[in-house]
Amino acid sequence: MRARALAIAISVVAVLLAALWFTHKGPVPRPLIAQARGHCVVNPSRMRRIHMMWLRQVRMRVVRYGVALRADRLTRCISCHVQKNAQGQAIPINAPGQFCSTCHVYAGVKVDCFACHAAVPEPAFAPGHFSGAHHIQAAFLWPRVLPRHFKASLSRAAP
């Protein structure tokens, strides 16, 4: 009796394994990321790991404290990474197969940024448009914000 139950269990497992063997198509291909123009503000391999924390910090500093540096702009990320279609129009960066969605689909992580942020650059908004020097005038906020802010950022180093 027990031998029969065992035989049934083994054959069920065998059938399942065989089904898996014949249906599985190999690993999901690694995402193919289009080459960006220009240089990333952070070493790309590091940026790949930390961009989510980086964006969270930067948005805090820019939105709440008005201290925006040249490297902080999401618009700059987009200007470098956006692809153009055959008509020369920018394709939204979160569209299927584009820079953000390629990895995020692969990783199964939803991108929420573009519910509010523009996913294409403004036509006259080429990389390097900002000199950054103007932002220094907001630096009166800096001394009392930055040290704490940086401490918080250090305690959130890359995973």
Partner: peptide, 11 residues
């Protein structure tokens, strides 16, 4: 304190 978005003193 580790989450920059819930950074108590600033808020």
């Amino acid at each position: 304190m580790t989450d920059p978005d819930s950074f108590v003193p600033q808020d």
